[in-house]
Write a protein that binds this DNA or RNA. Structure first.
Lengths: 205, 205, 205, 205
DNA sequence: AATGAATGAGCCTTCATTCAT
DNA sequence: AATGAATGAAGGCTCATTCAT
């Protein structure tokens, strides 16, 4: 009676493997930088053989892509969690304060990996999948829609896009420590005014 | 009277060569992308030998660096030209309108190269030289200072930094044609409100 | 009963590979000379890919170094074999006769390789490992010590050093076929008198 | 009246140039080692252009060859000077003492260059010209002939060859400071006994 | 004769990917 | 499915030599 299943169903094993590999990739990337990262190294760091690595990823690009996806998805989860908890009670400002807190927190999950993914990558080639991008977009749009009345921007989609870009740029400024420049701490408090300022700006036409 | 020198003095020849090489680099980069660009190809595209290329650039990185510098310097020229022509008569809004026009124009000088330099590069490693960065910064700060009274942001340096980041992010959104997303044309008119909105936002504390 | 392991245990395979590569290196070196020897050629001669070669040797220098070590170690083996078989019965002269026979034989194992290693190499940079050098030294010193009474040289270590140098120089003269010069055969019988003459020379002070 | 000749006759200029170039080669060789020496560097060190260098030497090998020749010729001069001053009064021992002194002094003329020429060169390929070799040989043979009666070696030519090799080996041991090993100073006094011991060794057959 | 920029063959080395075991 | 040795195309860079000026 072969009732006992494999300890783990195949799919699960595969997923665990994929995660192990991505963890290794992340570690190597952080430790050595993109230029000195290669598949053999990643396999070794994952405790498997290169051959096995290629069982789970068809090529190096797929590996990079998957890592980006996973990283961004994790950030998205945190972000959506915050958005989902918003009630109708919140003001535009308080909502964005929460949202920015969440975004900063998300970026600080794996800050080194995040830095490399943002700065050191020849990889916008393969942009984060549209699905993820859209969910970020939709979350922000949801907030804007809820406060439609308070917003002077004529087109919500356009405003969402602009806010998204502003947030990304400014939060990276806070999170990514550059060699010179102003302290991240002093930028942080400016993000809310920037967003709110834009959304509520007086428009002539 | 053999007074006439060689058609071009030595220094000039060297500069012409450097420019020829950078032009070739730019072309190859645009045509094939960073990953498929190599020094032999660049030399060929420049109509010279690899050896010659290495007479002018010590290594591949120096080539990339120089190309970035040249590109950014050209953008800076255009930008500073606009800023220099500003009179005290301009309003905060009109000044930023001019400034954004200039920036967009600057980014459209070599849009494809610009895209690759912005997106495809493992190159924050070698950031644009601080001097250039600072001159961008100073230009913007100059404008802000002139309109200090109209600005609610408490710290001009911080505000400059934020504006700079916003401008970069939003102008890239306008200039860099992504596969999906909103049309750049619709983003463009939002930049002024975004900047002005931030600068004049009501601040509680 | 699948008790039989792979035909060759891993370590053995690796060693075989190293030897195959060194054999190829040796062959190429002999056929083309050092200046025209390169890693790709060696790999080809070894019937493997360059990549494989670099799996066993980190760089070209390591390859050369290893070849020298192997060659000298083999010579050392032959030499030590002879020394070990010496009994107390031998005279100073008969001992050195045997010793010189062994050295000549050792040099004639791979005479062409030996010539290149001795003459064509920018390689004192990476001297034969001290351990090997010392074992040669110690063997000779052992013989001298046994015959201490018959030796006029005041310091055994110094005498060992001198004898070692003399032997190397004279045996190379015998073994290395130069373009012109005396026939090696006529030099050979002079080595024993040279060594014995030195060791037993009358010293005034 | 174009009476004034070029300041220097052509031949002389050429010789001066050749010497300038060889001096530069020597300097570069000593400062950077063979592996890091190249023709462009030598030309620069000589204060001329590569093109000019190639006016005087057809290729790199010729340059190396010429430098060796010059160096060895200079050593030969010093050596022959000593030999020429020998009178019939000298004993075998005193003659060799003088001769060894001269050789050591010769090797210490440009010790660093000498070291590189001896140790770091893939250059026995192009052995010192036979003429020079022969003059060394002849000088030594001359001394041996003068003392023929005191010498037990049956064949003067063979003995000359052996002595020559011994001298070269032992003097290099004195002059070339290796990383480990006995102090050169302690080897020096052994050279005379070695040579004399060989020449006067008792021979059985 | 001098110059030195230009040449380009050639070398060492890396690494994504394959495949026999 | 796993292994990891093997592959080999590709790339950065050097340097002896040439040649237009």
């Amino acid at each position: 009676m072969k009732l006992q299943p494999r300890k783990e169903p195949r799919q699960a094993r595969s997923r665990a493997m994929v995660d192990t590999i991505l963890d290794a990739m992340s570690r190597v990337l952080v430790e050595r930088g993109y230029a000195k990262t290669n598949t053999n190294l990643v396999a070794e760091a994952a405790g498997i053989s290169v051959g096995s690595l290629y069982q789970y990823f068809p090529n190096k690009d797929a590996l990079i892509f998957a890592l980006r996806e996973r990283h961004v998805t994790r950030m998205l989860s945190l972000f959506e969690g915050v958005v989902d908890q918003m009630t109708d009670a919140g003001s535009l400002t308080s909502d964005f304060e929460a949202l920015i807190d969440a975004l900063v927190a998300a970026h600080l999950l794996e800050p080194e990996l995040n830095r490399i993914l943002e700065e050191e990558f020849p990889a916008f080639n393969m942009p984060v999948s549209n699905q993820i991008r859209e969910r970020f977009f939709d979350s922000i749009r949801g907030v804007l829609k809820r406060h439609r009345a308070a917003i002077s921007a004529p087109d919500i989609d356009v405003a969402t896009f602009v806010v998204q870009r502003m947030l990304k740029a400014l939060i990276n400024a806070v999170v990514l420590t550059g060699p010179g420049g102003l302290s991240p701490g002093s930028i942080r408090p400016e993000i809310v005014p920037a967003v709110i300022g834009y959304l509520t700006a007086q428009r002539l036409n």
